[in-house]
């Protein structure tokens, strides 16, 4: 089943990225690789620098040093919207939906980046703009039906239950037509049943949309079940990597999570 190891085409690579905020080194000399078709997890205790790493990859921060490569091409220092256009989509740790807009609008907006006409043609509804606008609506409908959101299509995003908001955030990320999907704690605040559903959902969309998935997650059940490989970060430094079994039995990881035995 593990086709990822067979092909080994790197989609995302970070080469020695370091992110410093004043005196604090949030991420230190981090080098990772995520291959085509893999599901890779980034784990580590709170404050280990996982979200900072995500923010560097998606262009929210420019790394102090180091390089981020997308399919071999450097994307270091590009603005987030450029990186999204190149096929990287993300979700956020604290859900960031367009709260006062409907589910449908949330997804429709994520299609904006594929819209290639200027604002005048769009406003005056000239034929080519009209065609593209129509295409956006068709694609949105398709995605909504495909992901089971049709019943809440016209609801305001912030009125959805928490689990469904997470679901919508992933759907919105998918609407940008990414190759690489970054999920920042997708199961945060979910109960076991919701987490199971989420696991299945991630697998499903991964296969359906040919994605590569890189995620930060604290639910170890989810991580161990779904990941092909795992990177472990502690105080900004990579302390372990490997498949779930290797990582689970790595003494360094146990130490980082539970503290050194003498201290306990």
């Amino acid at each position: 089943m593990n086709q990822a190891l067979k092909t080994m085409v790197p989609v995302l690579e970070t080469k020695n990225i370091t992110m410093r905020f004043g005196g604090v080194v949030a991420v230190n000399d981090l080098s990772i690789q995520v291959n085509q078709g893999e599901i890779v997890a980034l784990i580590g205790p709170n404050g280990a620098g996982k979200t900072t790493a995500f923010n560097v990859i998606t262009g929210v921060y420019t790394p102090t040093s180091g390089d981020v490569l997308l399919k071999g091409e450097s994307i270091t220092g590009l603005l987030p919207d450029k990186i999204t256009q190149k096929g990287v989509a993300r979700t956020f740790q604290n859900i960031r939906l367009f709260k006062n807009l409907t589910v449908y609008e949330n997804i429709l907006i994520a299609k904006h980046l594929r819209f290639k006409a200027d604002f005048m043609s769009a406003t005056l509804q000239l034929p080519h703009a009209r065609r593209m606008e129509k295409q956006m609506h068709t694609d949105t409908e398709l995605l909504i039906n495909r992901l089971g959101l049709q019943s809440v299509k016209n609801e305001i995003a912030s009125s959805l239950p928490y689990g469904q908001q997470r679901h919508l955030e992933i759907a919105r990320a998918l609407a940008t037509e990414p190759e690489l999907l970054l999920l920042d704690e997708p199961a945060a605040g979910m109960n076991p049943q919701e987490t199971d559903e989420l696991t299945a959902f991630i697998r499903e969309i991964k296969n359906e949309y040919n994605l590569t998935v890189f995620m930060i997650e604290h639910h170890m059940d989810l991580v161990m079940e779904i990941s092909d490989r795992i990177y472990v970060l502690d105080f900004g430094v990579l302390i372990a990597e490997g498949n779930p079994d290797q990582v689970q039995n790595n003494p360094k990881v146990i130490e980082a999570y539970l503290g050194v035995e003498e201290d306990a």
Binding site: A89, L97, F98, T123
Partner: peptide, 28 residues
């Protein structure tokens, strides 16, 4: 017409959440 167009929706996205809008590929 402008607000109804995709540009109008992009404006609203920026109003709702700049960071999310940018992550959706909208050049702020």
């Amino acid at each position: 017409l402008l607000i109804k167009s995709t540009y109008g929706r992009a404006f609203k996205a920026i109003r709702e959440d700049e960071i999310a809008a940018e992550a959706m590929g909208i050049n702020l």
